[in-house]
Amino acid sequence: MALNVYRKSEHLPFAPRGIALGVFDGVHKGHRHLISMLMRRCETLELRPGVFTFSYDTGVGFNDRIVNHDFLMTDDEKIETLRSLGVEDIFLIPLTSEFCHLSADSFLRGVLVESLNTRLLAIGEDGRFGWKGQGDAAFLKEFARHNALEPLIVPDFLWKGRKVTSTRIREALAIGHIEEATEMMESAFRLQGIVVSGSNLGSRIGFPTANFTYPSTSALLRRGVYATHTRLDGVRWPSITNVGVAPSVRETGSDMLVETHLYDYDGDLYGRTLAVEFEAFIRDECVFSTIHDLAARVRADLDAVRALHQSGGEAPLSGMSCIIE
């Protein structure tokens, strides 16, 4: 069936629904488990499966916290991933001050039951909702006893003995554990941007790069060099990517950049939109005393990345050293 995306919770087509509630950042293994359980129960009850989640267009999150390098996915990536899981309705509601101040009862009664015609609500066992997180699993169960709403409380999903959370994935990205993050998300972490002009140093040393500013709302990666693939107009190109401030050639305090070399591509990328998918961390960002040293290190990094791509991800990487032995 067709996917519907709603950005408000009023004046909706009438349909009895089962709803999964959450932020769903990264749509990771835990989220997928919750949605899978929702889908099965919706099929039994003949309900339309949907997800109620949030957009942060105001730049402010829960508890008036400013959004800054918080997210594993853009809204568009989240929508496409949820679509692939079979969700039919997505309620992507702006996180306004008015919405955040709804009590738990007002949210369940006024938004979910009355506006969305929700008959089944799925949350994680530690899920919270309503002003200052007043609502929890116990609150939902008590509310359901007096209303036509079935609660579905889904236990935590464990991977390697620990609960899978968006925070755990962000922590993995921050220390360069890309493979772990990918496995928990069941998809690659991406950064997307429009290519801008740079110093052209890469071209001068034989490795032209397409550069864009690190997205301000995306979770932070460890600074350094990565094996990547880059999507351009629907085509996926093997690539090597540096994330950082290019300290050998740029001033201290410069903005973070994503610098990508599509090593089998030949063409002008300025002004084009790229989506870089991160696969493996190679080494930390380094300061080089000469351009010759920089070029030699990049050449060695590229050889390692080519070998990694050609082997399907099994080749040893060049390590974390800035020095070529």
Rank of each mutant, 00 (worst) to 15 (best):
N63V: 08
V60G: 14
R297K: 11
L121W: 03
L191Y: 03
R162T: 14
D266Q: 08
T58I: 07
L302W: 08
A172T: 13
N147H: 15
G30S: 02
G319I: 05
G50R: 10
S239I: 08
G130C: 04
H33F: 13
A246S: 08
D25H: 02
F24C: 08
L34W: 10
R190S: 05
T81V: 09
R32C: 06
T96G: 04
I205D: 00
V154S: 14
S106C: 10
N200D: 09
M185I: 01
I291L: 00
R204A: 01
M185W: 01
F278V: 12
L262D: 14
A246D: 12
A137V: 03
S203V: 11
R145Q: 13
V27S: 06
R223W: 09
P155I: 06
D284K: 14
L149F: 06
F281L: 08
P247Q: 01
R204Q: 02
H177K: 15
P16A: 13
D266Y: 04
I324R: 12
F288R: 11
E285I: 10
W131C: 12
E142N: 10
Y265C: 03
I178P: 10
Y56S: 15
A144R: 11
N4K: 13
V87Q: 11
P94C: 01
G110F: 01
T81G: 13
V196H: 09
K163T: 03
R299T: 06
E46Y: 15
E277N: 07
G234T: 01
H31G: 05
L120I: 07
D284T: 08
R283M: 02
R168K: 06
G206C: 02
H69L: 02
P151W: 09
L317C: 08
R128N: 09
L269A: 00
D233R: 06
E179H: 07
L140E: 03
F157Q: 09
T53K: 07
M1K: 10
L85P: 11
F288C: 07
M39L: 15
T213S: 11
T58G: 11
R48S: 13
G22D: 03
D57E: 10
E285N: 13
K8P: 14
P247N: 03
H31W: 04
P49G: 15
T217C: 13
L92W: 03
D75W: 13
R162G: 12
E88P: 14
I323Y: 14
V154Q: 15
T96H: 04
S254E: 04
A181D: 13
